[in-house]
Design a protein around this nucleic acid. Sequence first.
DNA 1: CGCTGGTATTGAAATGTTTCAACTAGCTTG
DNA 2: CAAGCTAGTTGAAACATTTCAATACCAGCG
Lengths: 345, 345
Amino acid sequence: MTDIHKPAERRRLSMVDVAAHAGVSVGTVSNVLNRPELVAEPTLRRVRASIKALGFVPSAPARQLRGGSGRSVGVMVRDIGNPFFSEVLPGIETRLSQEQLLLVLCSSSDSIEKEAHYLQILEQHRVPGILITPAGQDISHLVELRRRGIGMVLLDRPGADSQLCAVAVDNVRGGELAGAHLLALGHRRIAFLNGPSIVRQCADRREGLVKAVRAAGLDPGEVITEITLPALTPREGEAALELLPLGKGGPTALFCVNDTVALGALRGLERRGITVPHDMAVMGYDDVEFAALLSPSLTSVRQPKHQLGQAAAELLLTDARGDSGHWHQEIVFQPELMVRASTGA
Amino acid sequence: MTDIHKPAERRRLSMVDVAAHAGVSVGTVSNVLNRPELVAEPTLRRVRASIKALGFVPSAPARQLRGGSGRSVGVMVRDIGNPFFSEVLPGIETRLSQEQLLLVLCSSSDSIEKEAHYLQILEQHRVPGILITPAGQDISHLVELRRRGIGMVLLDRPGADSQLCAVAVDNVRGGELAGAHLLALGHRRIAFLNGPSIVRQCADRREGLVKAVRAAGLDPGEVITEITLPALTPREGEAALELLPLGKGGPTALFCVNDTVALGALRGLERRGITVPHDMAVMGYDDVEFAALLSPSLTSVRQPKHQLGQAAAELLLTDARGDSGHWHQEIVFQPELMVRASTGA
DNA sequence: CGCTGGTATTGAAATGTTTCAACTAGCTTG
DNA sequence: CAAGCTAGTTGAAACATTTCAATACCAGCG
C-alpha cells in the first residue's frame, strides 16, 4: 500500500514551460499569443506546436492583473425566474458574446442587501461594466460605482435625472395604446388590474391609461376602476375578479398590467362562465411568448425585449470603454399594440 | 482651454496604499482581510479604518493568481430563451450564491463551436467547475476538462457510462407515465409529436411510451403514430397536425414531447374545430409555468426544475472541491404526472 | 541574567502574465 | 568596411495579492 502515492500535484503549465519547450523566451511566447505579426514564421510555428503539445491554456487572471480590467460584465436582474428577463437575456448575451465578453448573472431577488453584496464582488472582480435593474429606488450607490470607473447601465428603468445611462420602454405610451384601443372598441367602463404604484412600470402604465381616457374627452374617475394587486401573479389576477361587479353595469373591459396577471384573469372569467371577448374584453401587457397562444389569444402590448437587451449591452460597451464624449445616454423604445382575439378581433 | 486637464489618471488603490496609510506592512493588511484572528485588536481597528477611509477594494484577479482557482463557476445551457432553463436557473443560483460563487452564464445556442469557445474561455478563467447541458452527443472534451481539474456536472442529461457526474430527470419513466395515463383513459390510437431522436430526452420519452403500451399488452406499432418535428416550437407543433388523419379512425390522443409543442397543437386543434378533450385528448411534458393556465389546462409531466438546478449546483460543489472519495455520481429525479383538463379531468 | 515560549509583525518570494527598452544578427549603403 | 537600418528576440520590471520563514518584543522562569 505504502508505495502507492498520489500523482505528483502537477503544477499548472505557464508560459515559462512553453518557452522552455520551444526554446524561446517568455516574451516571444506572449508575442505569439497577442501580436503574432511581430514573430518570424518558423518561430511562430514552433511555439504554437509547443502550446498544443503541452496543452497550455493562458491564465485570464494573470492577464487581467497586468492589463487592467477584465472581460466579464455583470448583469443584475431582480428575478431570474421572471419570463420578462428570460426574454431580455438572449439579447444581452448575443451582443456580449460578439465582444468575447463573459456574462456574469446575478439575481438580487429584490433584496437590497443581496444586490449590494453582488455589486461588491463584481467590483472586486474589476468588471468593466454592470447592467442592472436596481432592486430599490435609490441609485446613488450605482452612481458612485460609475464614478469609480465601472460602466453602468440601467435596464428597464429610466435613468433618474440622467445620472446614468439607461434603456427602457415607454410605459406611459404603452398604457395609452392599451387605453385607446379599448376606448375605440366602445368600452366605457374599464377595470385596471395594476401592481403597487411604487413600482415605476405600474405607475407609468396607469398614467398612460388615464391620458388616453382624457384624450377621448371622458372622465378617468368614471371610466377606470383600478384594483391594486399585492403581487403580479396569475393567482392574484384571478382573485382580483372577486372585487369587481361583474354583472350588468360592471366593467366591460379588463386591462391587466401584465400578461401573467391576464392569464389568471382569463382563467377566472372562464370559471364564471363569462366569455371573452363577448362578455368581457381582456388585455395584457408585455406580450410574452405564450400570449399569442392562449385561447382566446391575448391582446397585449409588446415590448421589444430582445432589442432592449441588445441595446442595453451596446450602451454598456460604450460606457465601459469610457469614450469621453459619451454621457448618460438614455434609449427609450416604443411599445407596440398587438391586437388579438381577447378584445374581439 | 489648455489649462483644463484630465483628472490625473488615478491608479487603483492597492494594499500597499492601505498599509502606508495605516502604518503597517502589506502582510498585516492581508492578514486583516484573511486571518483577522492573527492580528492584535488595535491594529485591526486601525487597518480597517484605513480601508474604509481610502475606499480600498481588493483585487479578485490578483488573489486568484496567487491562490489557485477562482470563485466563479460556469453554467452552459443550450438556449437561455428556453423556459425550461429559466426555471432551472433559479435553483442553481440559490445554491451558488450561498457559497459566494459567481454564476457565469453561457449559452451555446446549440452550436458545438460556440460551446467549445466558451469552454476555452472558462478554462482560461480557471473556474473551479462547470455545469453543462452539452450541445452535442460527444462529451469526451468534457471528460478531458474534468481530467485537467475542472469540476464538471452534466445537467439534464445522464452521465454517459458514468464518466461524469450528472443530474437528470428520468425521461423513460416520464414517457411511461404519460403513456399509461392515456391508455388508462381508454385511448388506443396515440399520436406522438416527438423531436429528433438524436436528442436524448426525446429518445427516452419515446422509449417510456413504448414500454407503457407493451405493459398494457398492446402492440406499439399499432397504437403509436410518431411524427418527428424538426424543432420543438409551437409552430411545428401546429404544423404537425397536417400529417395526422384527424377524422374517424385517426388518433384519439396526442402526446407532445414538450409543453411548447403542445401549445401549438392546441391552437391548431381549436382552429380545426376539434374540441379538447372531447374529440382529442392532449398531453404535454415539462409542466412549465403556464401549462396549468391554458384553456383547457394542460395535462403534463412535471419535472422538478428547481430541485434539479439545486442538486446540480450541489454536485458541482463537491466535484469542484475535488474531495477524493467522490466519483461520477448520478442523481436521477422522478417525474410526476399532472392530470388536468386537456385529457378530460 | 540567560532561556524559553508565545504573540504580533515584517519582508520577501512566488504567482503568470504583458510590455518595453535593449540587444543581436544580417543586410544595405556610402 | 564602418555605419545604419530592420526584423526578430530577449530579459526584466510591473501588476496586487498570499504565504511563510524570520524577527522583534515581552513575560515568566530557573
